[in-house]
Amino acid sequence: MILFIKLFLAHLLGDFIWQPNSWVADKEIKKHKSVYLYIHILLHGVLAAVLVGKISFIPYAILIAVTHGVVDLIKLNFQKKKTKRTWFVVDQIAHILILIGVTLLYENKTIINFWQHNAFWILLTGVLLISKPTSIFIKTIISIWAPESKNSHQDNSLIAAGNYIGILERLFVFGFILTGHFEAIGFLLAAKSIFRFGDLKEAKDRKLTEYVMIGTLISFGIAIIAGLLVQALLLQLP
């Protein structure tokens, strides 16, 4: 575990802390012809080797540097202006998976078969339940009360922001229940109410207020029930 932490620290330093925006811009323009790309690759290898601090790890540090460069080159050549965010996520996931693989390889360990454990399936089902399926369920249930839009203030909101906020809040509630921090649920609900107060005050629409309250309470309710059910099932495991 400590080896992965050191490698992850090296990744954070190399990819974010010690990589100026000028390097990133130069790489995006010149791609494989950018000298900063190779400095960046070398930096990752050196950081990995130095932070681990073992001569025997040097070949693995070289492996990290080379694979990091390959992943970066793939991203630089395939990403477009509209897909930068997607490629950023894919790029970071690939780097982390490589670090995990190198850690297991160096420590001569095998990947644990998570799917062979009942707890994994219980948690996975719970998390998936409170994500998009619950969003669709809530939207369908409260659609009969959806207030008509009388102004364009909603046009200024982010695309599908409400959906993502709902999923995130349910994941937080789910996690709070499994970790036994029920008081944090009240804090989260209060925080959301404060942020929502401005919109509801400006709207001056009782139907909109009731609509938001119903959606919020159903969302929190489902997350709480799902968390308690998952917790109960996990406690039944041998």
Score class of each variant (00 low, 15 high):
residue 46 V to W: 01
residue 191 A to N: 03
residue 104 L to H: 10
residue 179 T to G: 10
residue 221 G to Q: 06
residue 217 L to H: 01
residue 31 K to P: 05
residue 102 V to R: 00
residue 230 V to C: 11
residue 112 I to G: 10
residue 53 G to H: 09
residue 215 G to D: 00
residue 155 D to G: 01
residue 57 F to Q: 04
residue 185 I to V: 15
residue 162 G to L: 11
residue 102 V to A: 08
residue 148 E to F: 09
residue 222 I to D: 02
residue 104 L to P: 07
residue 37 L to S: 09
residue 8 F to T: 02
residue 109 K to H: 02
residue 155 D to C: 08
residue 56 S to L: 12
residue 133 P to L: 00
residue 207 K to A: 15
residue 58 I to A: 05
residue 183 E to V: 13
residue 142 I to N: 06
residue 166 G to S: 07
residue 71 V to R: 05
residue 123 L to T: 03
residue 232 A to K: 15
residue 127 V to T: 11
residue 187 F to P: 06
residue 225 I to W: 07
residue 193 S to C: 10
residue 79 Q to K: 15
residue 90 V to K: 05
residue 215 G to W: 01
residue 174 F to N: 01
residue 60 Y to G: 00
residue 143 S to N: 14
residue 32 H to G: 02
residue 79 Q to G: 01
residue 26 D to T: 07
residue 7 L to V: 01
residue 74 I to A: 11
residue 60 Y to M: 05
residue 127 V to Y: 13
residue 223 A to N: 09
residue 93 I to Q: 03
residue 150 K to P: 04
residue 221 G to F: 12
residue 150 K to M: 09
residue 215 G to V: 03
residue 8 F to N: 01
residue 39 I to D: 06
residue 195 F to C: 08
residue 216 T to W: 07
residue 163 N to S: 11
residue 229 L to Q: 09
residue 177 I to T: 04
residue 209 T to Q: 12
residue 212 V to Q: 03
residue 190 A to E: 09
residue 236 Q to E: 14
residue 74 I to Y: 11
residue 66 V to T: 11
residue 106 Y to W: 01
residue 178 L to G: 01
residue 225 I to P: 11
residue 66 V to K: 00
residue 186 G to W: 06
residue 163 N to F: 13
residue 154 Q to G: 13
residue 82 K to S: 15
residue 202 E to P: 02
residue 19 Q to G: 03
residue 81 K to D: 14
residue 104 L to C: 04
residue 151 N to T: 13
residue 112 I to S: 14
residue 102 V to P: 06
residue 205 D to R: 05
residue 223 A to D: 12
residue 153 H to E: 13
residue 206 R to V: 12
residue 137 F to C: 11
residue 101 G to E: 02
residue 218 I to T: 02
residue 20 P to F: 04
residue 200 L to H: 07
residue 202 E to C: 07
residue 135 S to L: 06
residue 227 G to P: 04
residue 226 A to V: 15
residue 224 I to S: 00
residue 91 D to I: 00
residue 84 K to L: 15
residue 120 F to V: 00
residue 9 L to C: 08
residue 26 D to N: 13
residue 20 P to R: 10
residue 126 G to K: 02
residue 115 W to M: 14
residue 112 I to E: 14
residue 143 S to H: 07
residue 120 F to S: 10
residue 45 G to N: 06
residue 60 Y to D: 00
residue 150 K to A: 03
residue 232 A to Q: 15
residue 145 W to T: 13
residue 112 I to V: 15
residue 103 T to V: 08
residue 138 I to L: 02
residue 109 K to L: 12
residue 157 S to V: 14
residue 109 K to A: 08
residue 21 N to I: 01
residue 173 V to A: 10
residue 174 F to D: 05
residue 85 R to K: 14
residue 104 L to R: 13
residue 134 T to G: 06
residue 32 H to W: 13
residue 35 V to C: 02
residue 196 R to H: 10
residue 98 I to D: 00
residue 15 D to V: 01
residue 28 E to S: 13
residue 225 I to M: 11
residue 107 E to W: 07
residue 126 G to C: 05
residue 42 L to D: 03
residue 179 T to M: 11
residue 228 L to E: 14
residue 72 D to P: 04
residue 148 E to R: 10
residue 218 I to N: 10
